[in-house]
Nucleic acid binder design. Structure first.
Lengths: 346, 346
DNA sequence: TTGAAAGCGCTAACAC
DNA sequence: GTGTTAGCGCTTTCAA
C-alpha cells in the first residue's frame, strides 16, 4: 500500500529522483515502458508504488492534447428521458465500453436553451475528445454545435435533419425501427387480424416516423383513422387508444410504437372490458422488460438491444478518435437488428 | 460569430496580441476583469470574440489545481439502479445544481470489483475536485476509497458503516426514512387496522432498516411474523406479500418499504381477490409517480423529494469545495422531510 | 537506451 | 492598473 503522504501529490520528478533516473525515463515507464531496459523499468515501477504516484491529468492533457474523456449529451425536452429506462440502458452500454478503454464519461444534461450555450462552450473548451449525443427532435441544435466545435460525434438515433451545408454524413447508431415495425404488423396480420390500428410516437422523432412507415409498408393504403399519434408515454398511449376505439370500434389489433404506450392502451382496453388478445391483439416496441413483462397479459413486442447500441456508439467514437486516416476510415452509421418477442398479448 | 479558423485554437497570447495588451491583462479580463480599466476590458473582450477564444481547460487546471468537475459515483450491484427512476431523478437534481455553478459532472458507474480500482485511480488522478456517491450497502468500499484519495465527498443515503478509524463524520443527505415510515404506519393504525404487516427492503441498506425501525416505533412489540424482507423490486414485493398472507391470513394492512414492492404486493392481493383498501389497506414509500399513480388503486405513499436531495448533495459539496475554513464550516449531514400522500390504497 | 531541455497555455506573484 | 516572469507537471524531440 502506498504511503499516505500528507503533503502534495508526488510528481514524476519525485519518482525519477527516487528511482535514480531522469524524468524522461520515468515518463516512458509510466507510459508503457517501451524502449527502457528492464532493471530501470522495475526501479521506476517500484518508486511509483512506493510514492503512490498517479500522473497529473491536466499536465498530461496539456501536452498531449488528449483528455481521455468523452461527453455524453442528453437533451431533456420533456422530462421523458429519465423516467425512461431506455436512456439508462444506453448510458450503461456507453459507460461499459468507455470504462473498458479507460475513457471517462462526462454527462451533459441539456434542459433549456441556456444549457445549449453552456454545452457549446464546454465542447469547445477542450474538455473532451469527442461526444456522444442523442438526437431526439427535428430542431435539435446539437448537431450544429458539435460540428462547429469540430468535435467528433456519434449520434444515437437517426438524425432527422438535413444539416445545412453538410458535406458528410453524421455517423449514428439506430435500431431497425422500420423493419421491427414491419415484423410486428406482419405478425398481427398473420394472426388474421383485419383492422390493425397504430399508436404512433411523436412524429418529429425519426424513430416514431420509421415505425409508422414500417406499419404502412405492410398495410399500404391503410385507413388513416386507424392511426393515432401519442407521445411515447403511458398516458398518451391510453389517450390514443380511447381515440382509436371511438373512431374505429371494430378494430381488432393495435401496434403501439413503444411499450409504454402499449401499456397505456392495455389499461384502456381492460377498463372497457375488451379482452386482450382475444378481441384486440396488442404488440409493443422496445421490450423494456420492466414494462413488457409486468403487464397483464405480458406484451408481445419488438426487442432491440439498447445497451448494445450504447456500446456500439462508444466503440465507433473511440475508433474515430484513435483513427489514423480519420475520414475514410469507416465512420459509417449502423442499424442494429430487432426481433419480435412473442408473449401473451398477441 | 467567431471566425472558424482552420488551424489550432487561439491562445491567450493571441488574444493579448490582438488586443494590444499583455497576456496577464488578457487573463484578468477573461477571468472577470477586476482591476482592469474599462477600455482595455472592452478591447480584450472584442479580441476574444473575434478569435473565438476559449480558455484551455488543462492549462488552467494545471496552475489553479481546480478542475471544475465533480464525480458522481454510482455503484450498480444488482442492476436495480438504472431501472429505478430514483437515481435518475437524483442525478437530475445533481446535474441541475452543478450546471448552475458551471461545474461538470463526470459519471462513474461501478459494476464490479475491477471498477473500484479504476475509480480509485481516477479519483486520485486529480480529474475532479470532489465526489458525490451513493451508499447502498454495508460493505461498500467506496467510502474508504474517497477517504484515501482525500477527496471531499458527499453521500446520498446514510452510510451504514462505522468507518474504521474514522475521526469525523461523513456528510450525507438522506430522507427522513424513519419519520416517513412512522407516518405511514400511524395512518394505517388510525384507520383502525389491527394487523399491520410490513414488507421491508433489503436490510443491509440503511433506508430499509430505518423504515423498518419507523414501523416498529409505532407498533412496539409487533408480531415478527408480520414482517417480511423483500429486495425493493416488484417481484420481491409480490413474493413477500404471498409469504405474509400465508403466515398471517388475517392481516388487514400492509406498509411496503417502497412503491415497487407495494405494486408487487397489490398484484398478489388482486390475484387472490382481496380488495384494496377495503380488506387490506396498503401504503408504499417513495411516491415515484410512474408507479404510485399507475397502480389500481393508486397508492397511498410517503413522498420524498428525490431531486431536491440530489440538488442538496451537489450544493453541499460545492460549498465544501469553495470552503474557506474547510472543516468547521458546516459539512453536516441533512435529513430531508417526507410527507404522506393519500390516494386510494389506504 | 538514456538524459537534457524545450515547451504545452495558463495564472499569480511581483515589479513597475 | 499593467506588464514581466516564473512556474504548474508532463511529454517529446534531440543529442549523447
Amino acid at each position: 500500500m502506498p504511503k499516505q503522504l500528507p503533503g502534495p501529490r508526488p510528481t514524476l520528478e519525485a519518482v525519477a529522483a527516487l528511482a535514480g533516473v531522469s524524468r524522461a525515463t520515468a515518463s516512458r515507464v509510466v507510459n508503457g515502458g517501451d524502449g527502457v531496459r528492464k532493471p530501470l523499468v522495475d526501479k521506476v515501477r517500484q518508486a511509483v508504488e512506493e510514492l503512490g504516484y498517479v500522473p497529473n491529468h491536466a499536465a498530461r492533457t496539456l501536452v498531449t492534447r488528449r483528455t481521455g474523456a468523452v461527453a455524453v449529451v442528453i437533451a431533456e425536452p420533456e422530462n421523458r428521458i429519465f423516467s425512461d429506462p431506455f436512456f439508462s440502458q444506453q448510458l450503461r452500454g456507453i459507460s461499459r465500453e468507455l470504462a473498458a478503454h479507460d475513457t471517462q464519461l462526462v454527462l451533459l444534461i441539456v434542459e433549456g436553451p441556456d444549457d445549449f450555450a453552456r454545452v457549446a462552450r464546454y465542447l469547445s473548451g477542450g474538455h473532451v475528445d469527442g461526444a456522444l449525443a442523442f438526437s431526439l427532435h427535428t430542431d435539435d441544435p446539437l448537431p450544429a454545435i458539435t460540428r462547429r466545435a469540430g468535435m467528433p460525434t456519434v449520434y444515437g438515433g437517426r438524425p432527422s435533419w438535413g444539416v445545412a451545408g453538410d458535406d458528410r454524413a453524421v455517423p449514428y447508431v439506430d435500431a431497425d425501427n422500420r423493419g421491427g415495425a414491419r415484423a410486428a404488423v406482419r405478425c398481427l396480420r398473420d394472426l388474421g387480424r383485419q383492422h390493425i390500428a397504430h399508436i404512433a410516437g411523436p412524429l418529429d422523432q425519426t424513430s416514431a416516423l420509421d415505425r409508422l412507415h414500417g406499419y404502412q409498408d405492410i398495410l399500404p393504403g391503410v385507413d388513416p383513422a386507424l392511426v393515432a399519434e401519442g407521445g411515447f408515454t403511458v398516458e398518451s398511449g391510453a389517450r390514443a387508444m380511447a381515440e382509436l376505439l371511438e373512431r374505429r370500434p371494430g378494430l381488432d389489433a393495435v401496434f403501439a410504437a413503444n411499450d409504454l404506450m402499449a401499456s397505456g392502451a392495455l389499461r384502456v382496453l381492460r377498463e372497457r372490458g375488451i379482452r386482450v388478445p382475444e378481441e384486440v391483439a396488442l404488440v409493443g416496441f422496445d421490450d423494456m422488460d420492466s414494462v413488457s413483462e409486468a403487464t397483464d397479459p405480458p406484451l408481445t413486442t419488438v426487442r432491440q438491444d439498447v445497451e448494445g447500441q450504447g456500446r456500439l456508439m462508444a466503440r465507433m467514437l473511440l475508433r474515430q478518435l484513435s483513427g489514423d486516416s480519420a475520414d475514410a476510415a469507416g465512420s459509417d452509421s449502423v442499424i442494429t437488428p430487432t426481433t419480435l418477442v412473442r408473449r401473451a398479448s398477441a
